[in-house]
Design a protein around this nucleic acid. Structure first.
Lengths: 201, 201
DNA sequence: GTTTGGCTATGACAAATGTCACAAAAAAAC
DNA sequence: GTTTTTTTGTGACATTTGTCATAGCCAAAC
C-alpha cells in the first residue's frame, strides 16, 4: 500500500483527486491540505510515502515545502504538480531533489501511473519542460538591472526606486536606460511588459 | 439519469471530474472537451441535460459558449465553473442566463449536489460573488479614459497611443492626467498597477 | 431649457525621464 | 594576473511626461 499526501490550493481538484486516487487498490490518501504550512506539518507527522505538491499555495509554496523536506532528509518521494511549465520553478524543483514534476494538463490516469513509477525509483519530468528549457531565451539583464526593473515595475518614481535600493537618482536612470537598450524599448512601462512576457521579472 | 457535458481546459481536472461524476448512480458524463469550439459543437449534437463550462479556454471561452447556447434556445441547463470571482465574468454569465456559477475552491461533492439542484430548477450562485459584487468599488474612469489607459498599458509612447486611437497628442496626455488624478497616482506605470489591481483594465 | 458630464483640442510650463559620455572600484571570468 | 563585466556615480542635454487653464461640441439628465 502506497501512502499519499496531497497539497493542492484549489479545493475542487484537491477533493476530486483525493477521492479518485483513493479508489485505486494500492493507493491510500492519508491527508490533504490547501496551504503549504499545514501540508508541511502534517507530512512530517504522517510520513507518507509520496507527497504531491501544487506550487502556488498560500503561506508556503510547494517549492518551499519541498526545500524544507529536503533539509529534513525526508524519506518519502516528493512530486510537484503544477499548471505552467515555468523554467524558474522547474529549476528550483530540481534543486530540491523532487522525484517528479508533472503538469496539470495531462489526464488523471497519467498521474496514477506516475506515482507508481516514482515509488519504483524512477524520476519523471514532464516532457514539455525540456522543450521549454531549450527554447526559452535567457535573461540578458544583469542581476542588479533585473532588480531595479523589478522595483520600477511597482510604479514608484525614480526617487522612490533610488531610496528603496540605496542608490543615487542618476544611477537608477542609468540602469533603466541600460535595461531599455537591452530590451529594445524606450520606457519603463514597455520594459516591464517585455520582461513580464519573458518571465524575467 | 442526468446527462452531463464537461468543458474544462485543464486536462487533469477534466478527466478527474469526469470519472468522479460518472461514479454517481444518477449522473452520466456523455462527453468532455478542453476547448470551447469543440464543446459547443458536441453539446449541440449530444443535447446533454447539464453543461459545465470553465471560462478560460482556448478558441471560445465558456462565456462565449454560454452566449451561443442562449441564442440557440438550448433546452439543457448551463453551469459555469471557474477559479476567480470576477465581477465582469459573473455579470456576463448572468446575462447569458446560466443556471449556476460555481467556484473551483469548493469541494467536489458540492458540485455534485449543485448539479442535482440545478436540474431541479434552482439557480445557484457562489456566495463569494455576492460579497464581491457589493464590496468591489466601481471603476471611476469614463469609457474613453479606460480605453486610453488600456492602450497606454501596452507600453507605447504618447504618439503611438494617439495614432492608435485617432486622437491628438495632447488629448492623450490630458486623458492620462485625468486618469492619474482619479486613481491618485502620477505615472502611467502606477496607474496601470492600480487599474489592474482593481480589475478595471 | 438649462445644466451636467464626457470627448476633443491647444498652448504653455515644470518636472520627470531617457540618453550619452565618462570614470572608478569591485567582482567575476579567463 | 590580466581582462571583462558589474556596480556605482556625476554631469549635461533633449525629449517626454504630467499639469493646468481654457474652450467648443455633443449627449444625457434634470
Amino acid at each position: 500500500m502506497i501512502t499519499l499526501y496531497l497539497a493542492e490550493d484549489q479545493s475542487l481538484l484537491n477533493t476530486a483527486l483525493a477521492q479518485l486516487l483513493g479508489l485505486e487498490d494500492d493507493l491510500q490518501v492519508v491527508g490533504t491540505a490547501t496551504d503549504g504550512q499545514t501540508a508541511l506539518t502534517e507530512i512530517l507527522a504522517l510520513q507518507p510515502a509520496v507527497v504531491i505538491l501544487d506550487i502556488e499555495m498560500p503561506q508556503l509554496t510547494g517549492l518551499d515545502v519541498a526545500d524544507a523536506l529536503k533539509q529534513q532528509h525526508y524519506a518519502g518521494k516528493v512530486m510537484i504538480l503544477t499548471t505552467f511549465a515555468q523554467k524558474t520553478y522547474f529549476e528550483r524543483a530540481v534543486q530540491a531533489d523532487v522525484a517528479g514534476y508533472l503538469l496539470k494538463d495531462s489526464p488523471s490516469d497519467q498521474l496514477i501511473t506516475a506515482i507508481r513509477r516514482v515509488v519504483a525509483g524512477q524520476t519523471l519530468y514532464a516532457p514539455e519542460l525540456v522543450v521549454n528549457m531549450l527554447s526559452s531565451e535567457q535573461n540578458p539583464l544583469s542581476k542588479r538591472e533585473t532588480e531595479v526593473l523589478q522595483v520600477a515595475a511597482q510604479g514608484g518614481t525614480t526617487k522612490a526606486i533610488a531610496a528603496q535600493l540605496f542608490l543615487s537618482d542618476g544611477t537608477v536612470r542609468n540602469y533603466l536606460s541600460a535595461v531599455f537598450s537591452k530590451l529594445g524599448v524606450h520606457s519603463r512601462l514597455a520594459a516591464v511588459q517585455v520582461a513580464k512576457a519573458h518571465q524575467w521579472l
